[in-house]
């Protein structure tokens, strides 16, 4: 089950990286988000899985696809200068980063002991636990997040309106 969702996630991300058509890349991104939601379900966290589907695929990706269609830029434009050296350097450095980070995780004794001790604690995340933590310990942060969303909304309207 885990490997299925992991493959959906990673293949979706790979498809987004390689896809020429921007809309198809966006749909690959939706597949990735669904895969991540499945991983959250396997982590005994149905709240996060629901939020992932509602916010990312339901709101953010719809907004992105809307903008893609509005700007009518389905294909990537031809490059003015291809810059092959920089592209290959970035690919090599990225592969090195990925291999190094994976090796570090696999060899870490702390992660290993946490994985062994944590597997015995199958505690599901519930909305009640989340609500208690959010409103008892992080009330100020919650209010600031609301203000930030309002500011972003006003900023987006101000940026897109031609003559305010």
């Amino acid at each position: 089950m885990f490997i299925t969702f992991a493959l959906i996630t990673l293949l979706g991300a790979l498809g987004m990286l390689l896809q020429k058509n921007v809309i198809v890349a966006g749909l690959c991104m939706v597949a990735t988000f669904f895969g991540v939601a499945g991983l959250f379900l396997l982590l005994a966290n149905p709240v996060a899985a629901a939020l992932q589907v509602i916010v990312y695929t339901g709101a953010i990706m719809v907004l992105v696809l809307f903008v893609i269609m509005m700007l009518n830029s389905h294909e990537e434009e031809k490059a003015q200068s291809t810059r092959p050296i920089q592209r290959w350097v970035s690919v090599v450095l990225l592969v090195l980063l990925a291999i190094g980070a994976v090796k570090l995780v696999m060899s870490s004794p702390g992660v290993k002991s946490l994985a062994a001790s944590g597997a015995a604690m199958p505690q599901a995340m519930t909305l009640q636990k989340l609500g208690t933590a959010l409103f008892a310990d992080h009330l100020l942060g919650f209010e600031v997040a609301g203000l930030l969303l309002l500011a972003a909304m006003i900023g987006a309207v101000a940026l897109t309106k031609r003559n305010l």
């Binding site: 982590l43 996060a48 946490l114 933590a133």
Partner: peptide, 13 residues
Amino acid sequence: FARFRGGDAQAMV
């Protein structure tokens, strides 16, 4: 990490 620390609610926040 939250799951393997026993369903820590702080991570969810």
